[in-house]
Design a protein around this nucleic acid. Structure first.
Lengths: 109, 109
DNA sequence: GTCTTTTATCGTAATATTGCAATATATAAT
DNA sequence: ATTATATATTGCAATATTACGATAAAAGAC
């Protein structure tokens, strides 16, 4: 009990839900929005920007990196993070693929 | 500790993440995909379809209903579930709004 | 070398999620 | 009224997530 039954679902469903889960936390969205708008991608200021502890932000960055939504480059003592463009466009496609499967109009609901 | 710091984020970020979280479980995706493809929307067969216990499915349906992604109509002793069309199109828009904010092409990553 | 700065990791506490058996509720059929 | 069927709710155990202080690791400044 308590453990997600991934065995019951398709590879696609498991993959998609894993990605959706990454978007399922406001801190990670805030990080992404900051990366989207910032022209430079030096990102040490995320701690002041978001108000979470440094350890917490590092953890969220790790999850975004694991999902390959962002990339990180070491730049001297700091790390330069930015959106993974290729993945970003791929994600747009994956989500649209779902949302374009329009619900069949039924009369009962 | 351990509680999401919603106070630190914008209303939009909190709302979006809440929706994304609903998509963040394969069972709920499986339910949605079943509702999308099924012409009829009588949904008692989800239990056999998915392989999860009836109580578990009922719980997932509740979360989908809370997020207003699906609607449920009582139909005799069973309940007829289907996608909430309006919400579905709205969600498509909300996700595209995010994905259309293309990352600025930087040279450092 | 030491010191400073920046980010990552570890350990741990608080909370949330998932799954299911048991039970409750609601309606239909008899 | 009793029984059968379908779904919801409750209670609880297992697991996952979130947050943060403390500490480690890595690189530049001196």
């Amino acid at each position: 009990m308590g453990v997600t039954r991934s065995d019951l679902f398709t590879e696609k469903q498991n993959e998609f839900s894993k990605i959706a889960k990454v978007f399922g936390h406001p801190a990670r969205l805030a990080i992404l929005e900051y990366l989207l708008k910032s022209q430079t991608c030096i990102c040490g200021d995320l701690v002041e920007e978001l108000g979470l502890a440094q350890a917490t932000i590092s953890q969220h960055l790790k999850e975004l990196k694991n999902a390959e939504i962002i990339k990180g480059n070491i730049e001297g003592t700091s790390v330069c993070y930015c959106i993974n463009e290729d993945k970003w466009y791929a994600l747009k496609g994956i989500f649209n693929e779902l949302f374009d499967r329009y619900p069949s109009a039924n009369d009962c609901c």
